[in-house]
Amino acid sequence: MKIEIGQRIKSLRIEKGVTQEELANHLGLSYQAVSKWENNISTPDIQLLPLLSVYFGVTIDDLFEMPHEVHLDRIDQMIDNERIMSTENFNYAEQYLKGILDEDPKCARAYYLLAALHYHRAESDKYLASEYAKSALFYAPDDKAHHNIFNKAMGGVASDDYYNRHDALIEYYENFVKTHPTNRRAYLYLLDQLIADRHFERAKEVLEQVKTLKHSCLDAIYEGDIAFAKGNEEEALTLWNASVTEFPNAWEAYISRGDGFVKLGRYEEAISDYEKCFSLMEKPRYTDPLTFMAKAYELNGDYAKAIETHQRVIKILEQDYNIVSGELVDAPMREIKRLQALI
């Protein structure tokens, strides 16, 4: 189905008796942006749809016709690019996704986006909660309740170890792998929780199952993680090194060993591994190793290099993904500003 929103906007604009400039000024855009819509060169961001519908006095559905996949892509981008999503945009995305599920109850992507949408709101709410808690602590720094809510909002560790456990997640994945015994990814998620909760014997059993499904660089990495969690740092390092030796061209081996070096406080070696990991990636490249590298530089006290690495993240987003704005860019920009204040 062809997207027709540009022509629809043009007809509604003419019907309302306004110019491209007047519409653009109302939306806080350039008239060239409106011109591109009306000539089908580009389409408006999903965040603008509620504003357009109100301005023209029509429903959002009346604005355009487009395939579900295009709509879903736009919602996906909205989740990635907005740090704090407006209630209006959230409600619109939620209603659209639920509408898809009314038509197709088996649409996995709609379920995924609903999960991502609600998780995004939860993360936004936790950020806002932490900011309010900081204000409470500023005016009443000795109040235990203020510290407790701030710790929860920031995802901190609880003094009572019971609240740091992952029992529900472990139970879910234990049942999941019973019904999906060849799903290697599920075993890896289960492994992460088991190691974090110190269920080492069960973790070893799961790791053996992983090895039967596929031998990879992660086998020795996870063996090293178990050894490290048990306090055997030398054994852990030997196993992490073995992963890189056996799989010298696997970027996953280097990023994982880099994480290990950070745990050991060996930041220079971690930085080297993150750089090697990034060099092995094909375009479009993940920015994770650069983000981790920036943190390693910061932990090592080299704030200038940390800033430079965050700037590399911004450049890769533009070069590999054509992303020049939104939360993916704003996040490293905030880190740069924070680090600049430390120099």
Rank of each mutant, 00 (worst) to 15 (best):
K295G: 00
A236R: 05
V313Q: 04
S216L: 00
A294V: 13
I255Y: 08
D259H: 06
S279H: 13
K214E: 14
I271K: 04
Y321A: 07
Q311Y: 07
K283A: 12
A220R: 12
K276D: 12
D330Q: 15
F261C: 05
A227Y: 00
I336Q: 08
L218R: 09
F261T: 03
H215G: 10
V210C: 15
Y286C: 04
K337G: 00
V324R: 14
S272M: 13
E335L: 12
L290R: 07
A294H: 07
A270F: 01
N241V: 00
V313S: 05
H215W: 11
E327F: 14
A227N: 06
K211V: 13
I307Q: 06
G301W: 12
E223L: 10
A236Y: 05
D273F: 02
G258R: 03
L290S: 07
E234G: 02
K211Q: 13
Y321F: 15
P289D: 13
Y286A: 13
L264V: 05
I323A: 05
K214M: 10
T212S: 11
K283G: 04
H310K: 07
L239K: 15
K305V: 01
N300F: 10
S272D: 11
L317M: 13
D219T: 12
A270K: 01
A253S: 14
L213R: 05
E282V: 06
K315L: 14
Y267N: 07
E318F: 01
N249E: 08
I255E: 11
I336V: 15
R334L: 09
K263A: 08
A294D: 08
V244C: 15
I221C: 01
A229C: 05
T238M: 11
R285V: 12
A236D: 06
R266C: 05
S243Y: 02
N241H: 09
A294N: 09
A227F: 02
T238P: 00
V244F: 02
N232R: 10
K263F: 07
E269Q: 14
V313I: 15
L264Q: 08
L239G: 05
A304I: 10
F247W: 15
E223F: 00
D288H: 04
D320Q: 08
F228C: 01
Y267F: 13
K315F: 12
V329L: 11
M281D: 07
F261V: 01
G224E: 04
R257Q: 11
E208N: 09
G326K: 14
A250V: 03
A242G: 06
T238V: 08
D330P: 02
Y286S: 14
N232P: 01
I316L: 10
L264N: 02
R338L: 08
T245D: 14
